[in-house]
Amino acid sequence: MAAGGDHGSPDSYRSPLASRYASPEMCFVFSDRYKFRTWRQLWLWLAEAEQTLGLPITDEQIQEMKSNLENIDFKMAAEEEKRLRHDVMAHVHTFGHCCPKAAGIIHLGATSCYVGDNTDLIILRNALDLLLPKLARVISRLADFAKERASLPTLGFTHFQPAQLTTVGKRCCLWIQDLCMDLQNLKRVRDDLRFRGVKGTTGTQASFLQLFEGDDHKVEQLDKMVTEKAGFKRAFIITGQTYTRKVDIEVLSVLASLGASVHKICTDIRLLANLKEMEEPFEKQQIGSSAMPYKRNPMRSERCCSLARHLMTLVMDPLQTASVQWFERTLDDSANRRICLAEAFLTADTILNTLQNISEGLVVYPKVIERRIRQELPFMATENIIMAMVKAGGSRQDCHEKIRVLSQQAASVVKQEGGDNDLIERIQVDAYFSPIHSQLDHLLDPSSFTGRASQQVQRFLEEEVYPLLKPYESVMKVKAELCL
């Protein structure tokens, strides 16, 4: 049975990233139509530049190519590739079939990587351009969430054990800070992308030097003109047959890092959902379990974690691919890159769409948070109580021993009897502590235990987050809708 299948058929496997999760716009960027249309555009740009620099290419040939950029006979191309065992030459023939007058000058002087690699770089750039505003929107939604809850005390956790208090907004800023680093890295790697350009079979530009009869300047002009037509500021000066596969490492490393950030955020949300302090959106008709109707599973956060793990592992592909590119190139890269580049971007696209949807509907339960604080705060307040007693004339050592005994009794009630923490009640009825009984409410005010959390939130948002989001103001209103 021949390899390949009808990918629109229910009898043929289709990647869930495309069929179930990723956005239509990201799927289109990695589609065959987008790819092969870009090949034709690159052939047109090459012909236009070659004509401008004096090669015998007519206006009629150029116009014929322009008129057929979208006229792609995919069936013919597939048949040609089956016959020739070469995808680029299959599309040269297919393009030439609908451009008979231009057929002889299509791909003039070029090698397969002229269309293959340059198209990949265009796709990487455009895919990054799709991700950047999506990530900015996630940051914006979380920034709104953090600002609104900047002063809401909550129990902090280290080692997932109760620690000092923080605020809900401050905790959210930990998430935002990681995503801001990801946004900066995505922008950097996007701006650092260079075009492969017009380089020939081993990167020496020998074929173009021959076409222009040894004119170095025209060869350099050709490279520059096509690079500018493709919208790049610069091209690699040095290439082998391909652009260095280190570029793929750079791009997928940034995406993998984004995956790590999203995994951490969504894990926190899942843990908070278990504590009943916070939940992701839950639709009115949504079913959490087929057997347990009360369940409210954090399905979206779980999906993000599941896909983020996949995204983090994909960076190993370009690392290994770059390491086995012998001399000017081997074909070890080809099949692998067809999979890992598309999957990385479709996965990143999915987790950003999902995280935006989550961040637009996060639900906080202040009463649950308050109750958990009441359970733990008495123990945390013991040092403040000791200091207040010393100020009232008591002995630190005597007070410490009193607190120690009462704390152990209260802990026994919590752990052995399943009761509430009654340390404060014990202190309130103990005559030894009568000098500070009137101060206990103040000493137990949760806001006095959150330090500068709310001020940190305000400063972080104003100095770091809002300036970073400013270039994306025009796209901030787009909502994230999930079908599944």
Rank of each mutant, 00 (worst) to 15 (best):
G5W: 13
P10N: 15
D11W: 14
P16H: 15
A22M: 13
S23Q: 07
S23M: 08
M26A: 05
C27W: 10
V29R: 07
R40W: 01
R40M: 00
L46F: 08
A47T: 06
E48V: 06
L53G: 04
G54R: 09
G54C: 08
I57N: 03
D59G: 08
D59P: 09
E60N: 10
E60A: 09
Q61V: 08
I62C: 09
M65S: 04
N71Q: 06
N71Y: 12
I72D: 07
E80A: 14
R85G: 01
V88R: 00
M89L: 03
V92H: 00
C99R: 05
P100E: 10
P100H: 15
P100A: 09
K101W: 09
G104R: 11
I106R: 00
H107L: 04
H107E: 04
C113D: 00
Y114N: 01
V115F: 00
N118L: 01
T119Q: 14
I123S: 12
L124V: 14
R125N: 10
D129P: 00
K134V: 08
R137E: 08
V138A: 13
R141H: 14
A143R: 05
A143T: 09
F145L: 05
E148N: 09
E148L: 09
S151G: 11
F157T: 03
T166L: 09
G169F: 01
R171P: 04
R171A: 01
D178M: 01
D178A: 05
C180L: 11
C180I: 14
Q184L: 11
Q184C: 08
N185E: 09
R188A: 06
L193E: 08
V198Q: 06
G200K: 00
T204C: 09
A206T: 07
F208A: 05
F212A: 06
K218W: 08
Q221D: 13
K224T: 10
V226H: 04
G231W: 05
K233A: 11
I237F: 08
I237T: 08
Q241H: 00
I249T: 08
L252P: 03
L252Q: 08
L252Y: 05
S253V: 12
I265Y: 14
T267F: 13
R270Q: 05
R270H: 01
N274P: 05
E280K: 01
E280Y: 03
P281S: 13
I287S: 06
S289N: 01
S290P: 00
P293Q: 00
R296F: 12
P298S: 08
M299P: 09
S301N: 03
R303T: 01
S306G: 07
L311M: 13
V315S: 09
M316Y: 05
D317H: 03
D317C: 08
D317V: 05
P318N: 01
L319K: 00
L319T: 00
V324R: 03
Q325G: 10
Q325A: 11
Q325M: 12
L331D: 01
N336C: 12
I339R: 03
F345G: 07
L346Y: 10
T354Y: 05
Q356F: 02
N357E: 06
I358L: 14
E370L: 11
R371M: 03
I373P: 02
R374W: 06
L377G: 02
F379S: 04
M380W: 00
A381H: 10
T382M: 11
T382N: 05
N384R: 07
A388W: 06
A392R: 09
S395V: 03
E401V: 04
R404G: 08
R404H: 06
V405K: 12
L406M: 13
S407R: 00
A410F: 04
S412M: 09
S412R: 12
S412C: 11
V413R: 12
V414S: 04
G419T: 07
G419N: 13
R426K: 11
I427M: 11
Q428A: 15
A431D: 10
Y432G: 09
I436D: 03
S448V: 14
S448F: 10
F449L: 03
F449R: 06
G451S: 03
R452H: 06
R452D: 01
R452C: 15
S454C: 12
E462T: 12
E462P: 06
E463N: 15
E464A: 07
V465W: 04
P467L: 12
L469C: 15
S474H: 14
K477H: 08
V478A: 14
A480T: 15
